[in-house]
């Protein structure tokens, strides 16, 4: 529990989170005087508004999210990347090769092939177009080694923890390097043993994301 000013409770769709004049932030709707949850999750009532942290659901891309995906389709101009959402991410040739990109001169195959996994950033997504991605930036690009494990995307904040506390904890105890995709994919780099440990820790978070003593549970699991 963060501070005393935040009140939490478990809700299902249709539950009245609170009555009165509050600001709806996420996964809630305002019906007259009532704030109603639209998802299964944990309702948080804070001074600036009411939101529900969902316990399930598909990933919705947002600008500037780092995601991990797999190339499923390519044509002369762009790659289509499965990012665990309802639309494929689009990675255009010009964003990889630069301004002077020409589909006749540059070989798309030389960069990414079908089946390649990559870390990318969502450049723009406005619900009328498929999410546009980019691989230029530190830590982005093709994945050459490591293992990808999946978790429900709504639980990613718990994997990260407060200011990255949970990542730090898992990385220190397992000697693994973790890259977290907001779409629920996590890239693990490290020894076989460390990866296995990290994976079981992530699985534990996935199953118990709604509990408050998550930190202690993870510590007791990975320090065994």
């Amino acid at each position: 529990m963060k501070t005393n000013s935040i009140e939490r409770k478990y809700v299902v769709p249709g539950d009245v989170v609170i009555e009165g004049d509050h600001n709806p932030i996420a996964n809630v709707i305002k019906e007259g005087n009532k704030i109603i949850s639209t998802k299964i999750g944990m309702a948080e009532i804070a001074y600036n508004g009411v939101k529900v942290i969902p316990l399930n659901g598909t990933y919705i891309p947002r600008t500037d999210d780092v995601v991990i995906g797999k190339v499923v389709e390519m044509n002369g101009f762009a790659w289509e990347v499965d990012i665990n959402s309802w639309f494929f991410g689009i990675l255009t040739g010009s964003s990889v090769f630069g301004r002077g990109f020409s589909s006749s001169k540059d070989s798309m195959q030389s960069q990414f092939k079908k089946g390649d996994c990559l870390v990318a950033k969502i450049l723009s997504f406005d619900r009328t177009r498929d999410p546009l991605m980019s691989v230029s930036g530190p830590g982005l690009g093709k994945i050459k080694e490591g293992e990808i494990t999946y978790i429900t995307s709504s639980k990613i904040p718990r994997v990260i923890g407060k200011k990255g506390a949970m990542i730090k904890l898992i990385e220190e105890h397992t000697n693994c390097h973790m890259t977290i995709g907001q779409n629920g994919a996590i890239l693990l780099k490290g020894t076989d043993d460390g990866r296995l440990k990290a994976k079981s820790a992530i699985e534990l978070i996935g199953n118990n994301a709604h509990l408050s003593d998550l930190n202690d549970r993870v510590i007791s699991l990975i320090s065994k």
Binding site: P13, G14, K39, I40
Partner: peptide, 11 residues
């Protein structure tokens, strides 16, 4: 539908 995490006004 609720289990799938689809936004709903009510069950």
């Amino acid at each position: 539908l609720a289990d799938a995490g689809i936004n709903m006004r009510d069950l």
